[in-house]
Design a protein around this nucleic acid. Sequence first.
DNA 1: TTATTTTACGCAATCGTTTGCGTAAACCTC
DNA 2: GAGGTTTACGCAAACGATTGCGTAAAATAA
Lengths: 328, 328
Amino acid sequence: MANIKSVAQKAGVNVSTVSRYVAGKLNVKKETREKIDAAIAELGYRPHATAKALKTSVTNCIGIVIPTIRNPLFADIVAGLTQRLEANKFTTMLYSTENHLSKEKEGIGTLLAGRVDGLVVVGSSGKTGSRDWLEEVKDIIPLVVVNRCWQNGDFNRVITDFTAGSRLAADYLVGKGYRRFAVITGYKDNEESQLKLYGFEQELWQRGIMLGQDMVAEGFFSYDKAYHAARKLLGYRPEAVFAASDLMAAAVLKATKDCGLVVPEDMAVIGYGDSQISQITTPALTTVAQHAVESGAAAANLLIEVMKEPGPAREVIMRTELVVRQST
Amino acid sequence: MANIKSVAQKAGVNVSTVSRYVAGKLNVKKETREKIDAAIAELGYRPHATAKALKTSVTNCIGIVIPTIRNPLFADIVAGLTQRLEANKFTTMLYSTENHLSKEKEGIGTLLAGRVDGLVVVGSSGKTGSRDWLEEVKDIIPLVVVNRCWQNGDFNRVITDFTAGSRLAADYLVGKGYRRFAVITGYKDNEESQLKLYGFEQELWQRGIMLGQDMVAEGFFSYDKAYHAARKLLGYRPEAVFAASDLMAAAVLKATKDCGLVVPEDMAVIGYGDSQISQITTPALTTVAQHAVESGAAAANLLIEVMKEPGPAREVIMRTELVVRQST
DNA sequence: TTATTTTACGCAATCGTTTGCGTAAACCTC
DNA sequence: GAGGTTTACGCAAACGATTGCGTAAAATAA
C-alpha cells in the first residue's frame, strides 16, 4: 500500500508537507497542492488510520459492549449509538458478550488497550457482578453505562426509569379495575428485571394490593420459556398479566389463547418495550414504551460530551410511557 | 498510561525482553519473568494494540458493513459474524449505512485505511450500484459479501438462495390449490427483493400460472408501508399473498383482518425469514426460513479462511426451507 | 581446561504518521 | 534596496510496539 512517504517522493516534496496538506492545514501553494493531488490519485493513497492513531493517540473509535444484538431493544440502542457516533465521525467497535457476564471483562479488555477513545457498556449486570471492574475501567477511559443502575456507583450513565414504567402499567391496570395480577419477569437476578418487578409491586402495594409469591415467574426474556411460565401462571387465574418484555407478552397471548381464554375480555396482558412486536400481535399489545433508540443516541451524546470536557459523573434518565392498545 | 518502556525500566531489563515475554516467546529466565510480572502488575500495563497493529500490520479486527441493525435478519447475521469472529480473537468494527447506499462507500472507506484485516459487506445493493467500487476494494483487503448476488462479480460470498426459497413457497401454494396470487416485495430496485419476486414468478410460470402486474406492490420492508400495499392488493381478491419478509407478512395479516377476512380460510399468507415474528402472529406464519445466523457464521469462517490463504473467489450458498405454520 | 553450542537478553531500525522548530523565498513598507 | 513580515516547506524526533542481529554468559561436550 502507498504511504505518505511514497506520495511525498512522487510529488517531489517532503512528507510533512503532504501531511499538512491532507490534514487541511493551509500554507501550501497551489502548484504543490496539484502535485500532491496527482501523486495521491496515481498511487491510490489513503492515510493510515492506525499510524495516525498511534501518533495522536486519538482513534476516532468508540467501543460498545452489549449482551446480545439479537434482542431488538439492544439492537435499537446500538442503532441510536451508531447513528450519533457516525454523524460525529466516530467508528464503532462492537463486542457482544452473548449474555455471558464473564465475557464482559474480556470484551472490555480487548477494547481498551488503546483501541478506542471511549466506551459504552449497555445492559444490566447480574447480581453485584462486575461492579469493581467497571470502577477501574472508568479511570482508564471515558465510560458511559446504559441501563445499568447501580445504587451508588459514580458513573456517567443513561438509564431508563424501569421502575416508573412498571408503575405506569400497574396504575393503569388497577384503574381499569383489575385486582389479581401475575408477572413474568426476565431473569430473577437481573437488575433490569428486578426494577421492573419492583416498580409494579410497589405501585400495587400503595394501592393496597398484594402480589402473591406464586404469581411471579421467570421468563428469561425468551418466547418459549415465557410460554411455559404463562401456562403455569394461568392456572392461578390472574385477571391481568404483566410481562417484562413484549416478546414474553406475546408468549402470554399465545398461552392464553391455547387455554381457550380471550384477551382482553377474559384477561388483560401488558408488555414492555413498545417494540415492533407489540404492534404485530393480535390483539396488539398495550405496553410500556422505553425509547431504546433515543437511549442509544443519548449515550452517544453524553460520551462525546464527557470526552470533550471530563468532570463529575453525569446522568440522564429516559422516561417511559404507557402505550395503550388492544390487549387491556 | 504505562507503556512497554516503563515496565522495562522498572523491571531493569530491555524493552525487547518485555516484548518477547508478553508475546509468549520463550528464552526468558524465571528471575526475569518475575521482575517483569511485578512491574506489569504494579504499573497496570496493557499492551497497546494500535502500536502493535502498526508494527505488525495485523489489527485482529474485522469490519462489518450493514444496511441497518434494526432489521432482525441483519441483526442475526451480525450475531453469527461476531460469535465466530470473537471466538477467533477478532474484534469487529460495525458500520451501519442506515439504508443509504451512498453511505456505504464512506463506511468502507473509513474501515479501510489500515483499520481492519478484513471486511464483510452485507446486504444487497440497489440497481447496479456500487459494483465497481467493491471490485476495487477486494484488491485492497480480504473481502466477503453476504447476500449480494452479482451476476458475474468475482467475489468471495455467502449468499442465500432467495430464488429457490421463493420457488418453495410458490410450489407449496400451488400444491395447495391456490391459483390467484399477490406479492409484496421489499424495494423495487433492491437485489434481494428482485430475486425473491423472480423465484416466485418463475415457479408459477412453470406451473402455467401468470402473476398480473397489478398483483405486485412495494412494501419497503416496513410494517406500515406493507399494510397500505396489502390493503390495495386485497382489492384484487388474491387467494394467497406472498410477502418478502415476515414483518410485511404480519402487516398483510392485519390488513386481512381489517378487511373482515380470515386467514387461512379466506386467504393464505406466507412470509420470508422465519424470524421470531413468524411465531408470534396469529395465525402463526408459514414462512421461508433463511438461516441468517448461520449465514453470518459462514461469512466469518470464509473470511478467516481467505485471510489465511488467498486464492480464487469462493462461494457458499445457504439453503432455504419452508416452515409451514397456520397461515396457509 | 578448552572448544562449542545454546540460552538470555541488549541494541537499534522500523511501521506510517504528526508536529515543533528552523529557514529560504516571497511579499510589504518606506 | 534595506529591513521586517509572512508564507511555504524541509528536518528530525516522537508515538509504542516488534524483531533481526549480535554477543556475553551459561551449559554442554571433548
